[in-house]
């Protein structure tokens, strides 16, 4: 994913001389080619996320197109008020990019997890919030953000970009990966890969699932969500705290839209911090977010409501 970010950054800076990259000491072995090619448009603010965001906002105030890059565990929480006031309240064209969303820093522990990121960023007016499922989407989001007159937030996982079925990126619109009549999975960001794995396994067991990727968390496409939920069984998968993710929002959208559901389940991170050392995959497995565990839970729910 981070290579996709670097490529998009290089292209963006080559195409528009107003584009600058700021980072808060995050980006070792990723951003160096940018620094080499555009030394006068590269700024390391040091380990100082508040300043990172304020300086980016100031640059945007001065007519530049800054990109502020840091880790998902730090950028939205340590820089929260600066994102709220300096960037969003003033509605400035800053692109905020974070790496390591959800639990993707795995064994580094709870200090490096960002399972509340979605709630923090979705709470801010004027901000478009993207969680890419793959590197291709990340590149598209980045291009969108650099052209926008408003602030953009892009959160990517630390993990490698998965191979997903080819699809078109339309900002705001869920990606329909596959359709099936037995239920609908809405998968946020990089959870799309696990959701697709679950759907393939279920297919072999005779359960036909629709899978939609949600890369745009704000604004959410209420119309498309209601239409896609017509299978009557809805499952939301996201690597965020249950109370922080879009599961509750989707339930509200469906209730307001008068959807008649047989099942609604939210698969997310439970209300707890990471305990013992676990890798990202082990953590996903424990919380029921791996493809295999999702398939089992969905199978039980479908059978129970047949």
């Amino acid at each position: 994913m981070r290579n996709a970010f670097l490529q998009a950054m290089l292209e963006g800076a080559a195409a528009d001389e107003r584009v600058s990259l700021l980072m808060a000491e995050t980006g070792f072995s990723v951003v160096e080619p940018f620094q080499q090619r555009f030394p006068d448009r590269f700024y390391n603010t040091g380990i100082a996320e508040q300043d990172l965001v304020s300086v980016a906002a100031g640059m945007a105030l001065g007519g530049l197109r800054p990109v502020a890059y840091s880790m998902s565990a730090f950028l939205p929480s340590r820089g929260f008020e600066q994102i709220k006031i300096d960037v969003c309240y003033q509605d400035l064209p800053v692109v905020l990019v974070s790496t390591g969303t959800g639990l993707s820093y795995g064994n580094l522990g709870a200090t490096h997890h960002a399972a509340e990121e979605s709630a923090l960023m979705r709470a801010l007016p004027n901000l478009t919030v993207f969680f890419p499922a793959c590197g291709e989407e990340l590149g598209e989001m980045f291009r969108y953000g650099l052209k926008s007159e408003h602030p953009t937030y892009i959160s990517m996982p630390k993990t490698a970009s998965p191979k997903l079925p080819e699809h078109q990126f339309v900002p705001g619109r869920p990606v329909c990966y596959r359709t099936g009549a037995d239920g609908t999975i809405f998968a946020v960001g990089h959870s799309a890969a696990e959701a697709l794995r679950a759907a393939e396994q279920l297919e072999r067991q005779g359960v036909h699932m629709s899978v939609y990727g949600l890369h745009t968390l704000k604004p959410l496409d209420a119309g498309e969500i209601c239409t896609a939920a017509n299978t009557g069984r809805v499952f939301v998968v996201e690597e965020q705290q249950r109370s922080a993710g879009v599961g509750g929002d989707i339930a509200r959208i469906l209730l307001e839209g008068g959807a008649q559901l047989k099942t609604f389940r939210s698969f997310a991170v439970p209300d707890q911090f990471a305990g013992p050392v676990l890798s990202w995959q082990e953590q996903a497995e424990e919380y029921g977010l791996s493809g295999g565990r999702l398939a089992q839970s969905i199978l039980d729910a479908v059978k129970g409501t047949a």
Partner: peptide, 25 residues
């Protein structure tokens, strides 16, 4: 009124970015 304020500790960072932008340009 070039910028919003009311919460403290934001102006100097904004000023840094703005001063940098003026110089870059």
């Amino acid at each position: 009124v070039a910028a919003s304020s009311g919460s403290l500790g934001h102006g100097l960072g904004l000023g840094c970015g703005l001063a940098q932008a003026k110089r870059i340009r």
